[in-house]
Amino acid sequence: MGETKRCPGCTGKDPFLEELCKKYEPIKDNLIQMLNEVQEHYGYVPTKAQQALSDYLKVPMAEIYGVITFYSRFTLKPKGKYNVAVCLGTACFVKGSQKIMDRLKERLKIEAGETTKDGKFSIEETRCVGACGLAPVFTVNGEVYGKATVQKLDQVLDELGEKE
């Protein structure tokens, strides 16, 4: 059993991927489960992880790419140091979250899903973070800022901009 469970793509190179392959059986059904852990760990799905999963689960790279691009949680590019996510769920939308998104794009001069050149900020569109009572909401690295306004966003961005 030990032999078949080894992951040829990563053995000895990346302790995280090696551990991951120990945790799951090498069957195709586990692909999404494993990708979720990869995304959680790196903040994106790097090529080396795709290669490792492809070798381990015996799934072609193209198919893995297909799965990654299908699900919005998986990304192929690293996120910024501060990932600013604006909730565009309906409850936040009717309370004006689009204005916050527009302002964010304008300030950072990037589109949703992109990262600034210095790697400091990235923008994400999310659909409902579950804090509808606080709508509109944006989050920075998971921390929720409720009852948001354009001014509040500016203030948070200013503070983060000054930080290293």
């Binding site: 999404i32 489960q33 990708l35 979720n36 995304q39 299908f70 699900y71 919005s72 949680r73 998986f74 659909r127």
Partner: peptide
């Protein structure tokens, strides 16, 4: 438990 990955 199986986790979804953000697809409506």
């Amino acid at each position: 438990v199986r986790l979804g990955a953000g697809a409506f």
